[in-house]
C-alpha cells in the first residue's frame, strides 16, 4: 500500500504517467534536435523555431485535406508523404532565411535572437492571415486510432506509439547524418575550426546554409508528428520555444546525446509530478530545477571538449 493506492494501482499509475512523459519526450526531442543542430553547432539562436515547426504542421494538415479530397484510397499512408513534404518546405524556408538574414549576423549571436524573434512574429501573423486564427486538427487514418491494452488498467494509445517510432527513426537519421556522412563530418569540422575547415576546401558558407536548412527541416517534421497528438494554431509554436531551449541548454549545447538525455529527464520529471500536483506547479518546479542546475553547471549535462 502506498498512500490510498494498492501496489498494483500505484505501479500502473507510474507506468501511465511514464508513457505520457514519453509522448512529451518525443515532442521535446523532435523540436530540440533541430534546435540543437542550429544552436549547438552554429551558435545561432533561432527563436522562430516553433514557427518552422508549425509550418510543418500546416503542411501535414493540407496534405490530409488533399488526400481526403482527391486520393482517398491512399489516405492510410498520407502521413509519410506529408512528413517528407514538411521536411522540404520548412527546410527550404530555412535556407532562404539563412541567405537573407542569418548569414549577416553570425558574429552577433544576441542580434540573431532579436531578428529571428521578429521573423517569428511575422510568420505567426502570416499563418493567422492565411490559414485563419482557429486551431486545426488532422484526421488520422483508421490504423492510428484506438489503443492497445497491456493490462486491465494500462492503455497505450497507438498514435503515441507511432510518434515515438518516428522520433526514434529521426533521431537515428540525424545521428547518422551528423556522425557518419561526409556532410556531417563537414558540419563538425566547421564547428570545431572554421578557418581550418575552409583551408582544407570545405565550402563553409554552404555548410552553414545547409545546416540551418537541416535544422529547420527537422523542425518541420517535428510539427508534422505534433499534429498527431495536438491541434495546430498560429501561436502553438511559441508555447514550446522556451522549454525547448532549456532542453538544449540543459543537455549541453553541442551534444546530441545530451539533448536526448535532458529531454528525457525534463519530460519524465514533469509528467510524473503532474500526477501529484497541479500542472502549473509541476511545470514551475521542473523549470526551476533546470534553471537551478544550470546556474550551478552552466555548461549543461554533457559537454564537448573543443580546443578554442
Amino acid at each position: 500500500m502506498i498512500g490510498d493506492y494498492t501496489y498494483v494501482e500505484f505501479s500502473s499509475i507510474l507506468a501511465m504517467q511514464g508513457f505520457a512523459g514519453l509522448s512529451l519526450f518525443s515532442v521535446f526531442v523532435l523540436m530540440a534536435l533541430g534546435l540543437a543542430i542550429i544552436f549547438g553547432q552554429m551558435g545561432v539562436i533561432n527563436m522562430a523555431h516553433g514557427e518552422f515547426m508549425i509550418l510543418g504542421a500546416y503542411v501535414t494538415y493540407f496534405c490530409s485535406l488533399f488526400f481526403q479530397e482527391y486520393l482517398p484510397s491512399l489516405f492510410g499512408i498520407y502521413f509519410f508523404i506529408a512528413m517528407i513534404l514538411a521536411f522540404f518546405v520548412s527546410g527550404a524556408l530555412g535556407v532562404v532565411v539563412e541567405w537573407l538574414m542569418i548569414r549577416h549576423l553570425y558574429k552577433r549571436p544576441l542580434d540573431t535572437l532579436l531578428a529571428t524573434w521578429g521573423l517569428s512574429l511575422i510568420l505567426q501573423q502570416f499563418y493567422r492571415s492565411v490559414f485563419g486564427a482557429r486551431e486545426v486538427g488532422v484526421t488520422l487514418p483508421d490504423w492510428l486510432l484506438g489503443s492497445i491494452s497491456l493490462t486491465d488498467i494500462i492503455d497505450v494509445p497507438i498514435n503515441g506509439l507511432f510518434v515515438m517510432a518516428i522520433t526514434l527513426t529521426i533521431t537515428l537519421g540525424v545521428a547518422f547524418i551528423m556522425y557518419k556522412s561526409t556532410w556531417g563530418k563537414q558540419i563538425r569540422a566547421v564547428v570545431q575550426n572554421r578557418t581550418m575547415a575552409g583551408a582544407v576546401g570545405i565550402n563553409t558558407k554552404m555548410v552553414d546554409r545547409m545546416t540551418y536548412g537541416l535544422g529547420c527541416g527537422i523542425a518541420g517534421v517535428a510539427g508534422s508528428a505534433f499534429t498527431m497528438i495536438g491541434s495546430t494554431g498560429p501561436t502553438a509554436g511559441q508555447l514550446y520555444i522556451v522549454d525547448t531551449f532549456l532542453v538544449v541548454v540543459f543537455g549541453g549545447a553541442a551534444s546530441l546525446l545530451g539533448t536526448i538525455a535532458s529531454a528525457f529527464t525534463i519530460s519524465q520529471a514533469q509528467s510524473t509530478m503532474e500526477f501529484f500536483m497541479s500542472g502549473s506547479t509541476a511545470k514551475v518546479l521542473t523549470l526551476l530545477t533546470v534553471v537551478g542546475i544550470l546556474m550551478l553547471r552552466p555548461q549543461g549535462l554533457f559537454t564537448l571538449k573543443i580546443r578554442r
Partner: peptide, 20 residues
C-alpha cells in the same frame, strides 16, 4: 490589427540588420 505583428516583426529585423 493584422498589420501590427508584421510591422513589429519587421521592426525587429530592420533594427538589427540595418540600424544597429
Amino acid at each position: 490589427p493584422e498589420l501590427w505583428l508584421f510591422a513589429m516583426g519587421g521592426l525587429f529585423i530592420a533594427v538589427v540588420m540595418a540600424f544597429p
